[in-house]
Design a protein around this nucleic acid. Structure first.
Lengths: 248, 248
DNA sequence: TAATCGTCGATTGTCGACACTTTAATCTTG
DNA sequence: CAAGATTAAAGTGTCGACAATCGACGATTA
């Protein structure tokens, strides 16, 4: 029980923060594809499913709107953002921009502990590759890159990365598996870490460009292929259970 | 009267978007210093002053929280974010990162029209310098940099810049006048534009680093000087009228 | 038959109310 | 008189309700 810091610092994490919880639930539903792009998020429906009133649902939706996962259309409601290719490009463009920066910063602030964390996470990536669990692979990949931002030690930068990552996970989750060879994922991180350890900004940005750029092209290609099916106007559906499947 | 585009695109601007209006009013109150850092934003108070209920006020506050202007403390309310030096550094660090990127992008996408826009905005900066209106000077300065982001043509990047700019304007607004010589502001933009016109990424980033870095150091210095007075816990006050002054 | 208009259900935007928590003001008590 | 306990006031978190609006469907008309 910390002595309750001054009222202003960083968004204090509430133990029973209803709005935050709802926002997380909605986010998960979106990134896991249960609320596909273009689908409508009906306030009353979500509220009923979660057993709460509409007020906190609206606030949560507003947060996700500002984050970019939802789009608000006045008097019509909230919709899951479509995956138009332009959005993908804009997200990856920004991602590339901040990840270059974060990587260079991380190199500056790199300690032996933080270096070990990165190393170990690459090991995890390798081990995960054997599991044949694409979702898990994406998750561990995300963790590695998030580590870089943590080491960079700029909270705002980290928050921004989390926001972008949420949208990218939605994209990747919908695409399914991203790489044919999951070990490829693990391997491609090694030269990046090596560059960060070496500490030359040019080498680092070059490797980030290659690494992220690769994902960008790959995702862009897949989104272009799947373009019609992705982002079609869809029926409202349950956020607690899969739209298609056994349950309900 | 456009044919009402598809439900998902960019946040459609509503003509009577109460939440958006409230968010703007609150933002103005904050950046203009009527709600000083650390002060509490009482929902009922704001609602009463604006003649609305608390619901839209809460939603607006949540948006401003995600944007970084407010900090939510559960069961205690919203507070205007303090200007701790760490926040300043983090904001400027991110600003520098994305402005480098935007400037290089803008150079790539530069047309004769967009170049003229930048040129003309520098002229405006010069003319504004004669007016001895620091707030206006800051505003026109902001417009120039925003132009760069518009030319860069990445909507997400632009939104991010706007968010950061809001906080920076709060800082600068509280400091008062930033430069001793307002013409200095106008002049320092010229080599930046020249670099963008020339189009070499290295030159561009170097000039951005110099330009933004200068502001960063300046603001940092001033914030450090004013550190105790800035961000003190303050009494709640009206958002419609100045806390100190003639009216009320 | 195709297009337009009007009606009706569904959903949003906003409000006032109430319970619970925090903050302050007041009252003890050593 | 100071420090802690007690009480009152203020404020937040959440809810249910109501009017305004939107979209779909069907009736009407050319």
């Amino acid at each position: 029980m910390r002595p309750m810091s001054l009222p202003v610092g960083l968004p204090a994490l509430a133990d029973s923060d209803l709005v935050g919880q709802i926002a997380r639930i909605l986010m998960q539903a979106i990134v896991q594809g249960r609320l596909p792009p273009g689908s409508k998020v009906v306030e009353a429906g979500v509220a009923r499913e979660l057993g709460v009133s509409r007020a906190p649902v609206r606030e949560a939706a507003r947060l996700l709107e500002k984050q970019g996962l939802l789009v608000a259309s006045p008097r019509r409601g909230f919709f899951v953002r479509k995956l138009e290719i332009r959005n993908i490009d804009e997200i990856y463009d920004l991602r590339l921009c901040i990840e270059r920066h974060a990587s260079v910063l991380a190199a500056k602030r790199l300690s032996s502990e933080s270096r070990d964390l990165l190393r170990r996470q690459i090991d995890v990536l390798h081990r995960t590759a054997d599991l044949d669990d694409p979702a898990r692979q994406v998750e561990e990949d995300y963790r590695f890159h998030r580590l870089i931002f943590e080491i960079a030690d700029n909270r705002r930068l980290l928050r921004l990365f989390d926001d972008l990552a949420a949208e990218l996970r939605m994209v990747i989750g919908l695409i399914g598996r991203l790489y044919d060879d999951p070990h490829e994922i693990a391997r491609t991180h090694e030269p990046l870490l090596a560059a960060i350890e070496a500490g030359y900004p040019e080498r680092i940005t070059a490797h980030v460009d290659y690494h992220i750029g690769h994902a960008w092209r790959e995702v862009g290609r897949l989104v272009r292929e799947l373009s019609p099916p992705l982002g079609n106007p869809t029926e409202p559906s349950s956020i607690l259970f899969p739209t298609v499947g056994v349950s309900v």
